[in-house]
Design a protein around this nucleic acid. Structure first.
Lengths: 219, 219
DNA sequence: TAATATAATTAGGCGCGCCTAAAATTTTTA
DNA sequence: TAAAAATTTTAGGCGCGCCTAATTATATTA
């Protein structure tokens, strides 16, 4: 059995090495979790004893297959709860993360399978992120950044990279959500910002930082 | 902010003094929570510092208004989650308690109000227990024990006192759930057991222990 | 009411997850 | 490649919630 704290470390290591494609070093984990390097060393040794991570002193950490499986299960739980909060309880997409961070630690395995069924075996969470299935398989996600689209092209918003509350609330403000159609009207080379038509009507302007964090498929 | 452990103590004290109408003494709390008396003393002192209980050394514990409010909120959360598990996720009434014990500690206040709305502001949980509203008011519950009904009378099952998994599974087995109609066919004086007709068809026999734990209204 | 039994509290210890400060190791740079 | 800088680990400490054992207070009974 794992504690909440252990689960959070496993999640952080998974996120660093898989999603952010960085090294899971003692300091990167500490920074990611807003804790101290010495705390990370303590926990990483504990996780190594439980065969959840491979750990050699002074040389960073990787997840074992067992740790990987545990991490993916946490991702599955988090995203299913997020979808529940969004779809069934009517929360906005910038309000769900914190609550899901708590819900994901509820222990019951049946619960998560029943929730999956209740939500109709969904493939995407409210931020467009893929939900791994019971076996840990991720559905294919063939999106690319809005910043990679060129002038004149139309696309559909299918996800976001930045899930912070401020960014999501900003997208709400300018009228962008999952499924929104965007057309690239112009590309401003000096700062790489875009002029964009939203759903064939409103014209907006998005900074490079913004368009790097919006995921699209071509229409 | 309260910890999970503090919340569990508050719940136990509430249950002992209100539902079971007993004294909340150090030893009764310890027994109820399967812990040691010394642990209870520690925690009770902590709760007293937080003004959640009134505590005088060697003289038991009562909840302050603040503690009472906190306890009722826990009851509300527990019962709403139980109903969610039962009604939306299809769990049986003997499978929901343990999971709700975890879910009730999720912090968000909005969450619980959204859940209440999602479930349509219910008044009863799957065991027939009243769900206090947002203000902490309990809906009236004018039921009585099946053991108090007399021969020939018909009634409807509206609740249970014993929420243990074994008892609830037993009721399932003999065909009793909330809403089931029971008719007292005969009362066996030597052991106070009852012969009962279930939903105008099947005849069953229930021990005194069983009929003390089934709550009814007259039909 | 004094002796005894029971209940409650205190003292001190333990594991967990965190911390700071010091030591060890690796990496960078002169 | 030797010194300096950065990173990581270790040592030791702290609060929480729990424990056992010893002490203190209350309740019971002779």
């Amino acid at each position: 059995m794992s504690t909440t704290s252990e689960e959070n470390y496993i999640k952080a290591i998974f996120k660093l090495s898989h999603e952010l494609k960085t090294e899971a070093t003692t300091s990167s984990i500490a920074e990611h979790m807003a804790t101290k390097a010495s705390s990370v060393t303590d926990m990483v040794q504990k996780l190594a004893d439980k065969h959840l991570v491979n750990y050699i002193k002074y040389q960073g950490v990787t997840l074992t297959p067992k740790g990987e499986k545990a991490a993916i299960k946490m991702v599955r739980k988090h995203r299913l709860w997020e979808l529940f909060l969004y779809q069934k309880l009517g929360f906005k997409w910038n309000e769900i993360h914190e609550i899901a961070e708590e819900l994901e630690h509820i222990k019951s395995d049946v619960l998560i399978e029943r929730l999956d069924k209740f939500l109709n075996y969904p493939q995407k969470d409210p931020h467009g992120d893929p939900i791994p299935d019971r076996k840990g398989h991720f559905p294919e996600n063939k999106s690319f950044k809005l910043s990679q689209l060129s002038k004149g092209v139309k696309g559909i918003v299918v996800g976001v990279n930045d899930k912070s509350s401020v960014f999501l609330a900003y997208l709400d403000k300018v009228g962008i959500q999952l499924g929104t159609e965007l057309e690239i009207i112009d590309c401003n080379e000096f700062d790489n910002s875009l002029d964009i038509k939203v759903n064939d009507s409103k014209l907006i302007h998005l900074s490079y930082q913004a368009i790097q964090n919006i995921l699209m498929i071509e229409k």
